[in-house]
Amino acid sequence: MKLKILIVDDNEEIRALLHATLDLADAFEVHEARDGPAAVALAATLNPNLVLMDIMMPGAFEGDEACRQIKAAAAAAGREIPKVILISAKPLDQIKADAKTCGADLFIAKPFGPAQLVDTISNLYRPS
């Protein structure tokens, strides 16, 4: 069974690059959203296993708030709570702080390579 992944980034080129990278692995069903509110709405119907979320996005709220809302909505609905990997170009200490406060499972600092992305996802779902 393929993992259902929601990519959330305001930059269309980054979304396309992430999507293409994950398509090459052939282990994921990939969906996209361009901002936090769209991600929250799509996650409610899609029920993704994993959300790859950029932190800094324009609009009503950023990725850390979208992370909180997606996890809270899944919990309130009694659904599986998706794992969230934050992606950011912020300084590493800020990414760590954002991940901790919003309940993200992991984070990746930009720039990163395709192998690092796929390895991070695989490690997150590897049995203990």
Rank of each mutant, 00 (worst) to 15 (best):
K4V: 01
L6K: 00
V8N: 04
N11P: 03
E13D: 12
E13P: 00
I14C: 05
R15V: 12
R15Q: 13
R15E: 05
D23S: 10
A25S: 12
A27T: 10
A27G: 14
F28W: 07
E29W: 10
E29V: 08
V30L: 01
A33M: 03
D35F: 05
G36Q: 09
G36V: 09
A39W: 00
V40S: 06
A41D: 12
A41W: 05
L42T: 06
A43N: 04
T45I: 04
N47E: 15
V51W: 01
L52P: 00
L52H: 01
I55T: 04
I55V: 15
I55F: 04
M56F: 06
P58H: 12
P58Q: 14
G59D: 05
E62Y: 05
D64L: 04
C67K: 03
C67P: 00
I70W: 01
K71Q: 15
K71A: 10
A73S: 13
A76S: 14
A76T: 10
A76N: 10
A77V: 04
G78H: 05
G78N: 05
R79G: 08
R79W: 07
I81C: 05
I81S: 07
P82G: 02
I87P: 00
S88T: 11
A89S: 13
P91D: 15
D93L: 08
D93R: 11
Q94D: 15
K96S: 10
A97L: 07
D98Q: 14
D98T: 09
A99F: 02
A99E: 09
C102Y: 12
D105I: 04
K110H: 07
K110Y: 06
G113R: 15
A115N: 14
Q116I: 11
Q116N: 10
Q116R: 13
Q116T: 15
L117K: 08
L117G: 09
D119L: 03
N123K: 11
L124W: 09
